[in-house]
Write a protein that binds this DNA or RNA. Structure first.
Length: 469
RNA sequence: GGAACCAUCGCCAAGUUGGUAAGGCCGCAGCCUGCAAAGCUGCUAUUCGCCGGUUCGAGUCCGGCUGGUUCCUCCA
């Protein structure tokens, strides 16, 4: 398996800390609002990574955190009058539900900041004790970036002279402009605070991930040199978030946080990064109202994870057409029992995905398989061995890439109610009778009626089948 | 202002170590069909933003230019 390491800025051979195992930690969402398409893409990208490593035989341990202490959450508490926990559990549940709809496998470890406070405090205290962090008069604790000679190596940021041009505001209490908060002391009585030796307050964002990785991964997955194999997240997290994480962990523990760093590209709308401030964010829940989760998954995963992704409806329809072809083939070989997956096909897919998740190649291999198989069935409709192998191939696609697992006839009927279904069936029966009597005017009229309803029909050797367009 | 990444057919999009352009959508022709749809077959970039350079040979390496995006501030 080769992966692109964003720190080394090149594709490298993945050599895990522990033979045959892979530990991955991905920065999860701050749970103060619904997930948008960007969260989906990140989640999907690392789901693909996890599935690929599993298919290659690695024992994967996936961690994804929930940041459930944060300024934005507190703001939401103030706005809504609800408790912090009410808000965070609500959005965590929503997040998990929506990711499940996209076929994202659950992480093995899902730590929350609120459940890791001791680990966070311990790490901050260690840094203070080592004089790598300092408490200012307000009770805030800052990390002293000047004490870490490796600071900047993750994001390749030159430290010189940055302050003169930087847009970062200078806080006089900070020793260095780039020092960042490990702990924020509470400001008022209504503020949400946790007691700690240094002050009553709450953790800064960066320290959460470091402490959680240390707490949940280091012992079982680390080797004294690294805590985890791969640390992932969106490209915007590289700096400052991951730089800061790496610095804290390095200074507090004496070893590096992660052996490899991977970052996914953005979802863009009309060529611009999707974000709330731009007012162009697209909630996943809204997309899921209109499109099937599996189609969204296929679409969002159809472009290499490191590239930016320009979301638009036309491309989504194209993606759906491509997925449809797989399901039409599945219809052709269903129902039945799967035999063994074709070895060459499996190897080709694994080779593609093993090359830094080259999904484009993987999808093209699938397209070719579909065409070849259809061709073979056109020539020999009752090739039982091929039917079984095709079912196995599709099962493999589902396990590796997370699509193609549905019952094929149902796939084409998503969103159709029972009454509509009955109506469609009776129209088709009527049309078949008209056809039998060679009343083509009547049968074509019925077909037009169905098309007007958004239903397309196909006459096959086994009778007429229909699909929602 | 500083830094990084990207620029391939009408659209989407692959293309480690330079060796002569995957796949999908759309389109055209054909097979199949009562006609369609679906499926299949064939065709569709002498060319990879522009200009130079290195080389027997460059989409792939080097330099410059132009255009786009991102990061430097919360952010997937």
């Amino acid at each position: 398996m080769h992966i692109y390491d964003s720190v080394q800025k090149t594709k490298v051979l993945f050599e895990p800390i522990k033979q045959g195992e892979a530990s991955i930690y991905v920065c999860g969402p701050t749970v103060y609002d619904d997930a948008h398409l960007g969260h989906a893409r990140s989640s999907l990208a690392f789901d693909l990574l996890s599935r690929t490593l599993k298919a290659l035989g690695y024992k994967v341990t996936m961690g994804k955190n929930f940041t459930d202490i944060d300024d934005k959450i507190i703001k939401k508490v103030e706005e809504t009058g609800k408790s912090m926990q009410e808000i965070t559990t609500f959005y965590i549940d929503r997040y998990l539900e929506e990711m499940a709809a996209l076929g994202v496998q659950r992480a093995d470890i899902e730590p929350k900041a609120t459940e890791s406070l001791q680990a966070i405090e311990d790490m901050i205290q260690t840094l203070i004790d080592k004089d790598m962090a300092y408490v200012i008069f307000t009770g805030d604790v800052y990390f002293d970036t000047s004490k870490d000679s490796h600071y900047g190596e993750i994001s390749h940021r030159v430290s010189e002279d940055e302050d003169s041009l930087s847009r970062v505001e200078h806080t006089s209490e900070k020793r260095n402009p780039k020092d960042f908060a490990l702990w924020k002391a509470c400001k008022g009585k209504e503020d949400i605070c946790f007691e700690a030796p240094f002050s009553s307050g709450r953790p800064g964002w960066h320290i959460e991930c470091s402490a959680m990785i240390e707490k949940y991964f280091e012992k079982e997955h680390g080797n004294g040199k690294y805590s985890i194999d791969i640390h992932g997240g969106g490209a915007d997290l590289l700096f400052p978030h991951h730089e800061n994480e790496a610095a804290q962990s390095r200074c507090a523990t004496g070893h590096e946080l992660a052996k490899y760093w991977m970052h996914n590209g953005f979802v863009q709308i009309d060529g611009e990064k999707m974000s709330k401030s731009l007012g162009n964010s697209f909630f996943l829940k809204d997309a899921l109202k209109v499109y099937d989760g599996e189609v969204l998954r296929y679409y969002l995963n159809s472009v290499h994870y490191r590239n930016n992704f320009n979301f638009n409806e036309e491309d989504l329809q194209t993606a759906k057409k491509r997925l449809d072809k797989l399901y039409r083939l599945k219809k052709r070989v269903s129902p039945g029992k799967a035999s063994a997956v074709n070895k060459d096909f499996k190897k080709a897919l694994l080779d593609a995905m093993g090359d830094d998740l080259n999904i484009s190649i993987a999808l093209s291999i699938i397209d070719v398989m579909i065409a070849d198989t259809n061709d073979a069935f056109d020539k020999e409709a009752k090739n039982k061995a091929l039917k079984k192998e095709t079912l196995a191939n599709i099962e493999f696609i589902d396990s590796l890439l997370g699509f193609g697992g549905k019952e094929p006839f149902e796939f084409f009927q998503i969103g159709i109610s029972q009454e509509e279904k009955a109506n469609i069936e009776s129209l088709i029966t009527e049309r078949s009778e008209a056809k039998k009597e060679k009343d083509f005017a009547r049968s074509d009229a019925i077909r037009d009626e169905l098309i007007a309803m958004g239903i397309s029909i196909m006459d096959t050797a086994d009778g007429t089948v229909w699909e929602k367009a």
